[in-house]
């Protein structure tokens, strides 16, 4: 399992795709972060905040919005990263190497999954340097930042599991990318139906966004964590089943 994970992780850094994604992401969030900070430091905003007794703090405005943006951008990026996981193995016919080696299907899927998660955690660590730089001139609510990091990690975890599953379905990375993007977008938007009627129902529970927002507010609710864990376990199991189905 770890052998596969390490190979997967390393192979990202051999491809220009991963480097370009890392670079572009860093650029975009540098810009977002700068704008948010600039906006926060505007004199009229500062005076408004000063007059308000329950004014949101630095963390709430800058860091939370940054995470909010990350969720949206990840929606676009995760499909690009996960698309080639299994589909490229199918395309290059390298899957027999893994299937004929003494490694269980669960280990293959988990190895792939952990490899990608490793890549995303590197990306996240680089992005987290920006909010942490605020410590130079201010203070942060570490509880809220921690909940945000947990939220974004779980979000990536769920996105990746879905992307991995869709990648097992096809031999064409592009098809996998489009399929994953569609699936993630649907999960993102599915809660809107309930919002229109101003009530929370099944669709809100299914919506990936709702659970994310709760965590970003700094509210640690086990219900949200369970939601993500369920999504991850479900799609990883489906991926294993899918590979098993190939043999039959």
């Amino acid at each position: 399992m770890w052998t596969i994970a390490v190979r997967e992780f390393r192979s990202f850094f051999l491809s220009p795709l991963a480097w370009s994604i890392l670079g572009v992401i860093q650029l975009i969030f540098g810009w977002v972060f700068a704008i948010l900070l600039y906006w926060y430091l505007q004199p009229d905003i500062q005076s408004q905040l000063a007059n308000h007794p329950e004014a949101p703090g630095l963390t709430d405005i800058v860091v939370r919005n940054l995470f909010e943006w990350m969720g949206m951008v990840l929606l676009l990026i995760v499909p690009l990263i996960t698309m080639r996981l299994i589909s490229e193995e199918r395309r290059n016919r390298t899957l027999p190497l893994l299937l004929s080696s003494p490694v269980s299907l669960t280990s293959i899927i988990l190895g792939k999954y952990l490899g990608v998660m490793g890549f995303f955690l590197v990306m996240l660590a680089m992005l987290m340097l920006m909010p942490l730089s605020l410590l130079l001139g201010g203070t942060l609510d570490f509880g809220q930042v921690g909940a945000g990091v947990l939220g974004v990690t779980l979000l990536i975890g769920a996105f990746t599991a879905i992307g991995l599953y869709i990648s097992t379905l096809t031999a064409h990375p592009t098809v996998a990318a489009i399929g994953t993007f569609g699936a993630l977008l649907m999960l993102w938007m599915v809660g809107w139906a309930d919002q229109a009627e101003e009530q929370t129902g099944v669709l809100t529970y299914l919506s990936i966004t709702e659970h994310y927002h709760t965590l970003l507010k700094g509210v640690f609710n086990s219900q949200d964590v369970v939601y993500y864990v369920l999504v991850i376990v479900l799609f990883l199991t489906l991926s294993v089943q899918r590979l098993e189905g190939d043999r039959i």
């Binding site: 190979r7 192979s11 051999l14 491809s15 290059n92 016919r93 390298t94 899957l95 027999p96 190497l97 004929s100 080696s101 003494p102 490694v103 269980s104």
Partner: peptide, 22 residues
Amino acid sequence: QPLAAKQALGYLPEHPPLYHDM
């Protein structure tokens, strides 16, 4: 015992399974 059996096995498929970026 698939894992024990596969441990004893070396396989070259018709199309060699190689990772071209390694």
